[in-house]
Amino acid sequence: MDMFGDPAIWLPLAFASLMGLSILIYVCLDGFDLGIGVLFPFATEAEKDRMVASIGPFWDANETWLVLAIGILLVAFPSAHGVILTTLYLPVAIMLVGLILRGVAFEFRAKAPARRKRLWDLSFWIGSLMASLAQGFMLGLYVMGLEMTPFTLFFGALTAVFLTVAYSFIGAAWMILKAEGELQVKAIQWAQGGIWGVVLGLGAISLASPFVSSRIFDKWFTLPELYFLVPLPVISAGLIFLLWGLLRSLPRESDALCAAPFVLTIALFTLGFIGMAYSFYPYVVPDRLTIFEAASAPESLMIIFVGTLVVLPMIIGYTVLSYVIFRGKATELRYD
């Protein structure tokens, strides 16, 4: 299989792209699940049921993208996996406990005695909050090159808040799509209240990355690369203004454009992600370990790659099937 050239070059690239894609899908999909959890305290009892119903059939598969992303890091870049996860030991543990508390609450809040439901709602909220904050903190530390200084920790704390608010924003955008009536109006207000998280999050990372690493600075601010890169921030800014205006005009007659905020948010997340990916390539551990240095043996990567080519289209196929089956406004979830 030398048709693409040296497998020690293109296989790590392929897996880095695949890992990037998984992370992006995870951030978008579990982002809205977690965001809905973060928004829980602002909802009434009946609204909470409706909000959980809107993500009930999806959350488990959404979370599996995280397993795939961390799985690719583990199997394709084992030494990077070790460095990153031992450095981020505590935030990872907090995220995991958060994901546990959030994940079990889905089942328990519906099956436990009614008097315990409040407790599981609390577990759902706290869990979503812990997982979002921990992910935002790790994002910030990663941008800071996985260094631990008072400043990087402060930056991590900032991105923790921004990402959590950004998640609540995409969660609200999802609810605009899935809810009707009063809850939808509420979701529009939540989105209006949360858009600053997206703006500040994107802004903080875009500003900080080039100043932390002169390598990233050079990658962005040189000619002629700059010409190709300028559209990224420009389109992002455009999307933000579009979202801003759109949210003021919703809800519209016969629920037109109810999907637009969600779609635009995904576009925005994607642009931000492309920018980050460009900044950090070819490093998997910032400025320390490249994807080529960290990669597993080509023959092992190849056997996963072949399987991926077969299985990934199937995964995407039946994931789409499930979103089609459960399309439309969220109704009461029942087992029959």
């Binding site: 009930g56 059939p57 488990d60 795939l68 995964i315 994931t319």
Partner: peptide, 28 residues
Amino acid sequence: GNIAGPLLAYEVMTAFFLEAVFLGIMLF
């Protein structure tokens, strides 16, 4: 990792997504 990796990857790809997606359909 060269041995454990592919085995774990196949678990995620052939099993985890299948279970997770169709569980939603099976339950609701």
